[in-house]
Design a protein around this nucleic acid. Structure first.
Length: 281
DNA sequence: CGGCAAACCTGCGAGC
DNA sequence: TGCTCGCAGGTTTGCC
């Protein structure tokens, strides 16, 4: 599910219920997700105050007053449900792997059927040195276009594949890469190292617009993603190309030039949706 | 090192 | 109705 807009939507939902709150209790209903849940995790988390709730790329960071940080990733199918009234209101669901109760009385449940998610704790000051983050690119909501251009210049793989690499830019996933490339009129097959400064700037503008609009709309619910109140995102209704193989893209529809122009292809094992007529190499 | 397939899991829809 | 197959928002590993 979660690319940057979905994770940011979850972060904003958690903010009023977790930031500044004391974690009274945390329950792990299994000892691993994608990564193991260490034995000491509960002791390090329980009783601590949340000093801030931040996001980097698709990762959520719950920073604690004891200088430890919970690194939280939603995998493919992770969702967070908040019950402000606490345990009396909480309805356990299958695949609720982690349940947090705050001193203020809220219950927060992490549900993840496919268990591709991650939830582990590391010292806050080691975050930037830590494995995935140490060589991750800038966050897709706050990056330098000139640096993006330099990174693209070093890669000859297709632009679609390169933008999915979190070391290039952090937070983009399959949906938003397809959508941004469409809006920028760039073919997903174009070699990254053939991107001009001008085209990179154009792409960056469309990435910015696409992510902002998606966040405004609560992210995209294909199947699993939910806001923390259980409601669905809305941005899936605004896709130009993702999941629309065989349909007509908005540009071609406007020009009355073609129908059924949207094609679905595979790149590095992932589906790509695009309009071959209007997305240029 | 770069690039790609496969693996990690469960659930769901399509087709038979 | 029920079975099998393929596919899904991501990341990591291992093999050319």
């Amino acid at each position: 599910m979660p690319e940057l807009p979905e994770v940011e939507t979850i972060r904003r939902g958690l903010q009023p219920h977790l930031d500044g709150q004391i974690i009274k209790n945390i329950t792990f209903n299994r000892d691993n997700l994608r990564t193991p849940i260490t034995l000491g995790a509960r002791q390090l988390i329980q009783g601590q105050t949340v000093s801030s709730l931040t996001r980097f790329g698709k990762y959520l960071f719950v920073n604690l007053s004891n200088a430890q940080t919970i690194v939280w990733h939603m995998g493919m199918s992770g969702t967070v449900r908040i019950y402000p009234q606490g345990p009396s209101e909480y309805e356990p669901k299958k695949h609720d792997h982690i349940v947090i109760e705050t001193e203020a009385g809220a219950t927060i449940a992490y549900n993840d059927p496919r268990r591709f998610g991650m939830f582990y704790i590391i010292p806050t000051d080691e975050l930037s040195l830590h494995k995935p983050f140490s060589d991750m690119g800038d966050d897709a909501l706050d990056y330098d276009t000139a640096i993006l251009y330099e990174k693209l210049r070093l890669r000859k793989a297709p632009i679609k594949t390169v933008l999915l690499d979190q070391a290039v830019i952090a937070g983009l996933g399959n949906i938003y890469v397809c959508e941004a490339l469409f809006k920028a009129g760039i073919s997903p097959l174009k070699a990254a190292n053939t991107m001009s400064r001008q085209k990179t700037k154009r792409l960056a503008e469309e990435i910015d617009k696409t992510l902002a609009l998606a966040i405004e709309n609560g992210g995209s619910t294909l199947k699993d993603h939910r806001l923390t109140d259980g409601s669905m995102g809305y941005f899936q209704h605004m896709f130009d190309v993702y999941g629309r193989a065989g349909e007509t893209c908005p540009r071609c529809a406007n020009d009355k030039k073609s129908i059924n122009c949207i094609e679905q292809i595979k790149q590095a094992g992932r589906s790509t949706f695009y309009c071959p007529r209007t997305q240029k190499i």
